[in-house]
Design a protein around this nucleic acid. Structure first.
Lengths: 214, 214
DNA sequence: TAGCTTTTGTGAATGGTTTCACAAGCGGGC
DNA sequence: GCCCGCTTGTGAAACCATTCACAAAAGCTA
């Protein structure tokens, strides 16, 4: 099978959201989809053509069909069991943000090392001790682990979770994490994003010589 | 000035964090830095060489000097005034996550449209009505706005904030946002990340023909 | 059925980023 | 002061992603 780039997968995810909210008829052209996604029509067609030929020439793409195809490609036809490790502020926010439940991601277990948190019930889900991590992952047949622990603890958590057979990790800790090949890892790093903005502001300021028109 | 790619800027941010935690001596080689950053030594050197020549051949990079250079490049020598729009769960978590305060990002104002939230004091910062948004942005000389409102409200908030002169936005709403050129925008989208993991799991499963060794 | 319009799917061209490979420079040892 | 080993800085090469451009298909009309 062909290697698919991360940016392509990210765009597919975006296309799917657009389709879900699309109210323009039963078909959509690559042009329209591109407009809503902020990319080019050629890009849309190339992305989709990597997985098959879903469109009809002269017409565009059937919205329901393409939706189904994208869901299938992205693996969203099944439910995924998610565990959250770290019941701090970020963990709480993620737990509360049930938006992705509608896409088939269910947080089945929450773990924390703080005895004050262990035993709390969050909307029916008990916060379990991180000593029970491996056991809990197995019991709930966890597919994806969200790591929301402090930076210093993240690699240890990831090592345990990977050793327990989990193949997909979403890391919110502000640290670089190592995983063996074959394990999918995504990082969400606020500091990197903010510093990217800082760079943009600072470099624009530096380049704006004698002030700007607006 | 040369155009610098987003991936380069992201790596610089990573290098900086590594340097901050580095305890291996007064100098560091591109090799070491690359190891910690998960990239190649050539990549490190190329990234840095875009901004100047900071290393000493045969020796490597002086840790304090390179730290200072990176801080300067990324615009971290100054403080940035940040406003948070949206005092829901994600907003609360971001506010509580004061980690980036140490990097010079200060949340000076919080806005929400919910009357029940307006007037609350968060650790000394008052939650203000979103009717006061423009006024507050000016009063606090806000440089960066973090948008943590529901998807449907995000574009409106962004439009107002951009009209008020803000040039940098960090968007947590699960929607594609449009900004005029000249405004820096970064998106943090949990759903896209989770679906990326879902894709990785699903496609590996699909490709694993007759089972795997482990 | 033929002709016209629309829009896809895709090879080729372009543009950008990463890796390679090596000359140039620096410090330390003798 | 000179040589040696190490590590940078950087053109060139390789690789990857995006854009271009157009033939091929599909529907519609008459």
């Amino acid at each position: 099978m062909k290697r698919i780039s991360e940016s392509t997968v990210g765009r597919l995810s975006l296309y799917l959201r657009i389709l879900r909210e699309y109210a323009g008829g039963r078909t959509i052209s690559s042009e329209e989809l591109a407009g809503a996604a902020g990319t080019s029509a050629a890009q849309v067609r190339k992305d989709l053509s990597l997985f098959g030929t879903f469109g009809k020439r002269g017409l565009g793409y059937s919205v329901p069909e393409l939706t189904a195809e994208l869901r299938s490609i992205l693996g969203l036809e099944q439910e995924w069991n998610v565990a959250l490790v770290g019941a701090g502020r970020i963990g709480q926010a993620l737990f509360g943000y049930q938006d992705f439940r509608t896409q088939g991601f269910y947080i089945r277990a929450v773990f924390d090392s703080d005895p004050a948190k262990v035993g709390q019930r969050w909307n029916g889900t008990e916060v379990r001790s991180d000593a029970e991590l491996e056991q809990g992952l197995a019991e709930e047949a966890i597919d994806i682990v969200i790591v929301a622990v402090p930076g210093g603890a993240a690699q240890t958590v990831v090592d345990r979770v990977v050793a327990a057979g989990v193949r997909a990790i979403l890391n919110f800790a502000p640290t670089r994490i190592e995983v063996p090949s074959g394990v999918a890892l995504k990082n969400v790093n606020m500091a990197v994003e903010l510093e990217g903005l800082s760079y943009a502001l600072a470099s624009e300021r530096a380049n704006s010589g004698r002030g700007r028109a607006d």
